[in-house]
Nucleic acid binder design. Structure first.
Lengths: 351, 351
DNA sequence: ACTTGTTATGTTCGCGTTAACACGAGCGCT
DNA sequence: AGCGCTCGTGTTAACGCGAACATAACAAGT
């Protein structure tokens, strides 16, 4: 199928560099089926025989051939992860957590990055993965695609992390609403009349949810809802937005949808002579490792990615192994971490 | 081998949910061998026959079974990547770049994270990967292991990225020496009497090389070599070190071995009332996305990870495909990016 | 004694694919 | 004509493994 017209491989055939079950069996003086049973830790093998086989495996350095096993069992012991840019903090953490959880379950992880935010690109990644070499796929759908409904090839277990809760697949994510609400409530609780929002890009599910929850929390508290300012997650965009916000004296509290933008924002405020948190309180989201060491240390929302990874793998294996009773949605609660970038508004402030 | 004593899989046998070559062959009215030839884009197939087969594939939704293919060819179309913490900026970038390059070459990437910095942990990761399901492995050896010489299972192609150049495997890395030298020369060129160094952890190869090159550059320039201050890459450690450095009036220029530490350092200097770059010039290494938006924008060293990824895959495939003529070491040159955190020393400074 | 079960082992077969070889048709050459 | 060649295609035999079934030995009931 692929555009593969390379000449033949140099190794004409699979050169027998690995011992097979037959070799182990011969050395141990048993049948290869007994070796298979030992390799798979079946219980119905005499302990003496098992020992013989194990030592034969040792001496030969036997390792089971996953391809042969997969061929006969129809299972691969591998999970696919499809993700956008892994250099983004959240995606990297999610991938790492999934990989850890997968290894825990004795699965390996097949990673595939996607550059374009199109359904076609995602589907292409799926197909590459699906050439039947994974048992299931976690889609870290941090960004919206060009099409509203994601239709992936059927008969492949899928779990969506971070993405659209709208479609049919089981879903794992942080409770963005909860996180946003805790930030906004914190700032209102300090006495700010309202809280501005520096949102992430419109094509990000997380950004949307954070913005929605910000708005709702303000409305519920009877606070005025200022216009949303949009960034693109980068410190650069936060800086740009900050130059604007710094000119408005009525801005006393800003909730940035991630820490990087909060960083850029703080730099812009600093340049404009507006101190943080003296003139303006700033809060972020993510709790990146550096957040505690910014000037000033950033109030933000901490997220436990390990839990997300565990849930992704658990939900995926539920499908792979045919369990249908499992949960279909899991939300992980993030927690507010209050540091020094937020404070009550100055008494004499315009707000 | 693994601790696998789970009960049997629900699917008793590989349920035939995918069409096989035989199905395609039957529909197209050819032998399955001809289907194989078409699937592998061999040239010796009549164009009419090829069309018939292709359309049969289309209608049945045929996809080759990689397990069966791997079983017979002894090749998997997969590369393994063993890496430490992917939430570290450099590791994530490297992984992403390798994945991109691998896909380019029609290989998938099997990712395996390692937590402990022991050879045992790395070897364990290798074995998990090696259960013969990858054709070669890239070890992103960003940190030193407990043993000096890494002895991995033989007959597995390996490329080491970022790590010890001492062992036998082909190696890809940034030219750390060049990067460091450019930073130190830049600072000396501005008129600083010497440059202090906030190094990374002693167990990091990159940190060591950056420190060595810093020292050599100072020596070569006839500048005094101040004691090395050690951090652990984190902003926290940079902050700690900064509290110390801020107390020494003779410190007018500091080269931090990465940007995160530079951030912590700048915060400490700020708190101590030492302005950057007024009192102290600070330079980092890595050029993380936020570097341009710090207060002040950070002078640092930019690295092109895409190139590293390409080289890793190229060197690995050289081995996998039996080419022995390829290079065994590739160094990618990073480039100095001068921003506002570095400036000439104040005229009246002690230095 | 006999069934009936249980446990440890061996035998056969097929998973889907590709390599190696075989074969026949068509070609150009002596 | 006869030879040797290339080209397109089919046939066969693995690759290493585990499921299914077969077998043997021996225990515990009737």
């Amino acid at each position: 199928m692929a555009t593969d017209n390379r000449t033949r491989s140099p190794r004409s055939r699979a050169t027998r560099q690995w011992p097979s079950m037959a070799d182990v069996a011969a050395l141990a003086g048993v049948s290869s089926q007994t070796v298979s049973r030992v390799a798979n830790n079946r219980q119905n093998v005499d302990s003496v025989t098992r020992e013989k086989v194990l030592s034969a495996m040792q001496t030969l350095g036997y390792r089971p051939n996953t391809a042969a096993r997969a061929l006969v069992t129809g299972r691969f012991g591998a999970l696919g992860v499809v993700s956008f840019d892994v250099s983004a903090h959240g995606n990297a953490r999610t991938l790492g957590a999934i990989a850890d959880a997968a290894r825990e379950a004795d699965f390996s992880v097949n990673f595939m990055g996607v550059r374009a935010q199109t359904e076609a690109a995602v589907r292409h990644a799926f197909q590459h993965l699906m050439l039947q070499s994974v048992d299931g796929i976690v889609l870290v759908e941090s960004q919206m695609l060009d099409t509203p409904s994601l239709r992936l090839p059927p008969s492949m277990p899928v779990v969506v992390a971070d993405g659209d809760t709208g479609h049919e697949y089981p879903h794992v994510d942080f409770d963005q609403a909860h996180g946003s609400r805790s930030v906004v409530s914190h700032l209102l609780g300090l006495g700010h009349r309202t809280v501005w929002h520096l949102a992430g890009p419109a094509d990000s599910f997380a950004a949307r949810r954070r913005a929605e929850s910000w708005r709702r929390t303000l409305v519920d508290a009877g606070a005025p809802v200022p216009p949303v300012v949009h960034g693109d997650w980068s410190a650069r965009s936060g800086y740009r937005a900050g130059l604007d916000l710094a000119r408005r004296p009525e801005v006393t509290a800003v909730f940035a949808a991630n820490d990087q933008m909060a960083m850029g924002l703080m730099r812009a405020l600093h340049e404009a002579g507006r101190s943080v948190p003296g003139h303006v309180s700033v809060a972020g989201f993510d709790d990146i490792a550096e957040a505690a060491y910014l000037v000033p240390p950033l109030t933000t929302v901490h997220q436990d990615f390990e839990v997300v990874g565990k849930h992704c793998v658990a939900l995926l294996l539920d499908q792979v192994e045919g369990r249908t009773d499992g949960a279909r949605r899991r939300a992980v609660e993030p927690v507010l971490v209050v540091r020094s970038s937020t404070a009550p508004p100055r008494p004499g402030a315009l707000a």
